[in-house]
C-alpha cells in the first residue's frame, strides 16, 4: 500500500502548531537567564520556587480558584432548572431564552465587561470579589445551560414518565432518576466552566481593583514589567494542573465520552 505522505506532513504540521507553543513555554521555564528565551542556555528550578512563594501570584491564584469554583457552582444551580425546562417543555418565548443563552458567547466579552463595570463597579454596590463573582457567573452560565441541555436531550423523557407512572412525583423523579443519570454531564460542564472562568481575562480586566486581581490579570500585568521565565514556570504549573484535572476525571468518569 502506498503511503499518503502529504497527509503525514499535514499531521506533523498540525501537531507542531498544537504542541509547539506549549513545548517552548515548558522548556523556557527551566532557563537560568533573567529574560525569557528559547532555547535556554542553562537549567534551573528557581523560577518555580519563585512563583510559588510570591504572595502576588499565590493570592491571585487563590482568588481565581475561588471564583472558578463558586461561579461554576452558582451557574450550575441557576442553569440546571433553565436547561431542564428548555429541554423538556415547549412554551412561548422558549426560542428567545435559548437565544439569550448565546449572547455572552456572541457579544465581545470586552463589551460585556464594560457593561458590568458601569453597573456594578461605578455604583460601588458590592465588594470587588462579589462583583467578579457576578461577572464570572454571567460569563459561564450560558456554557452550563448549553451543556446541560445537550446532556438532557440525550436522556429519554420516557424514563421520567416511567418513574412518574410508578408513583414518583415530577420533582421527585427529577432527583432520583434524572440527576443520578446526568452527573457525568454535569461534572463535564463544571470542568468546562471552571476552566472558562479560570482563564478569563476580558471580564476580569474591568472588574478587578486595587489588591484584588485574578491570576491571568496579574500575569498580564507582571509581563508588562518583567519578561523572565517565572511566567513560563507559572504557565507550566497551570497546564499541569489542568491536565491533572482532566486525567483524573477521565479515570473516574470516562471523560472521553463527555467532550
Amino acid at each position: 500500500m502506498r503511503k499518503n505522505w502529504w497527509l503525514s506532513v499535514i499531521l506533523i504540521l498540525v501537531m507542531i502548531f498544537l504542541i509547539g507553543p506549549f513545548l517552548i513555554i515548558f522548556i523556557s521555564a527551566f532557563g537560568n537567564e533573567a529574560s525569557l528565551r528559547f532555547p535556554p542556555r542553562g537549567f534551573t528550578l528557581d523560577w518555580f520556587k519563585k512563583v510559588l512563594t510570591m504572595p502576588m501570584f499565590l493570592d491571585s491564584l487563590k482568588l481565581s480558584l475561588r471564583l472558578g469554583v463558586f461561579s461554576s457552582l452558582i451557574a450550575m444551580l441557576l442553569g440546571l432548572p433553565v436547561a431542564y425546562v428548555i429541554s423538556r417543555y415547549d412554551f412561548r418565548g422558549k426560542r428567545f431564552i435559548e437565544l439569550t443563552t448565546t449572547f455572552p458567547v456572541i457579544i465581545p466579552q470586552m463589551v460585556a465587561g464594560l457593561a458590568l463595570l458601569r453597573t456594578f463597579v461605578m455604583l460601588n454596590l458590592f465588594s470587588i470579589e462579589i462583583t467578579l463573582l457576578i461577572g464570572h457567573t454571567a460569563i459561564v452560565l450560558p456554557y452550563v445551560i448549553r451543556n446541560v441541555i445537550s446532556t438532557l436531550v440525550n436522556f429519554p423523557p420516557s424514563i421520567e414518565e416511567a418513574a412518574v407512572s410508578l408513583g414518583a412525583s415530577r420533582v421527585r423523579s427529577f432527583f432520583i432518576v434524572v440527576l443520578p443519570n446526568i452527573t457525568t454531564g454535569l461534572i463535564s460542564a463544571f470542568i468546562l466552566t471552571f476552566i472558562t472562568s479560570f482563564n478569563n481575562v476580558p471580564i476580569s480586566l474591568f472588574l478587578t481593583g486595587p489588591g484584588v486581581s485574578t491570576l491571568p490579570i496579574v500575569m498580564m500585568t507582571y509581563m508588562e514589567y518583567y519578561f523572565n521565565p517565572s511566567i513560563a514556570a507559572l504557565a507550566t504549573i497551570l497546564i499541569a494542573m489542568t491536565v491533572g484535572i482532566v486525567a483524573i476525571s477521565q479515570k473516574l468518569l470516562g471523560f472521553s465520552r463527555m467532550m
Partner: peptide, 15 residues
C-alpha cells in the same frame, strides 16, 4: 403518579 397504572414503553425506558 397517583393513578396506579402500569406503563410499558417502546424504548423500554428502564432506569
Amino acid at each position: 403518579h397517583k393513578r396506579n397504572l402500569g406503563v410499558v414503553f417502546q424504548n423500554y425506558a428502564l432506569f
